[in-house]
Design a binder for these strands. Structure first.
Ligand SMILES: [Zn+2]
Ligand SMILES: [Zn+2]
Ligand SMILES: [Zn+2]
Ligand SMILES: [Zn+2]
Lengths: 132, 132
DNA sequence: TATTTAATGTTATATTATTACATAGTGTTA
DNA sequence: TAACACTATGTAATAATATAACATTAAATA
């Protein structure tokens, strides 16, 4: 049985906002920007974020404590994510590379640990920032 | 010219503690445990942590906001890190796999971004937790 | 309907991290 | 030595991120 696909009111409001801004967004910035829609407390934001991450609609950029909408048809429910992050302008893009994801999904730990998920973050300078 | 190798007093105290506990440790837990050594404020801990990360003596586990000592001869100064994390017991180990690091170091982004650093975190169940 | 599961609302609080400013040590060089 | 730069330190206050606890409501399902 699949996880529910229909979003609740708060979940919709928050996903809409994240998709609209189209760049990494932080929880409290989301909160400030959706207060006019009736969302008043951090917890309402964090609960929606948790759920949206769980169903793969958004991802958390761990090194930045920020959230982005998934650009990659929901990444098999958030199990395999990779991002490039510009250390100058903080632009983030989701990497969609079949070879890379195959390689990582099948990566076998020496200690025999079985992996269910991974998150990879690359850091560097984006094209714009590297010519500056 | 290489970054300075000699650690300051606070840096030594904090690195010693992290190496001793030998598991992911959080900043405020470090603070509580080194107060008897004269470290009184969060900032003293965070400053030392920043420096130790910079010189590759420790790494930050981004998804856990925790720090571990490097097990891998300093990871070329923190530029290329990979960890496995057990979602049940929270055990973390640093992955040392030549093929993996070669593959990731040479990974070429489609947008032409040049990477200088990466961090990879795998999640799953460790051996102990998977037989439970 | 009765039950249970998911979502919401609200207040308070915990946890993680930084700003700002003052001071002290260390090495370099004029 | 004096002036300077640089690194590290000390301290207080506060910002930013995230969760606990508890009450209520809505939706799903048996
Ligand atoms: Zn995705
Ligand atoms: Zn950039
Ligand atoms: Zn290392
Ligand atoms: Zn485990």
């Amino acid at each position: 049985m699949l996880k529910q696909e229909t979003l609740s009111k708060n979940q919709k409001i928050i996903l809409d906002y994240i998709e609209k801004v189209n760049e990494p967004t932080k929880a409290y910035s989301i909160l400030h920007n959706v207060q006019k829609k009736g969302i008043k407390a951090p917890l309402q934001v964090y609960r929606a974020l948790d759920r949206l991450v769980e169903i793969g609609k958004i991802h958390k950029i761990e090194s930045r404590n920020a959230f982005v909408a998934c650009k990659n048809s929901s990444c098999q429910l958030s199990k395999a994510t990779a991002f490039s992050i510009c250390e100058s302008c903080e632009e983030v893009s989701e990497i969609s590379d079949n070879k890379l994801s195959k390689y990582l999904k099948s990566f076998q730990d020496k200690a025999g640990m079985k992996f269910k998920k991974y998150n990879l973050e690359f850091f560097g300078l984006c094209k714009k920032c590297s010519i500056k």
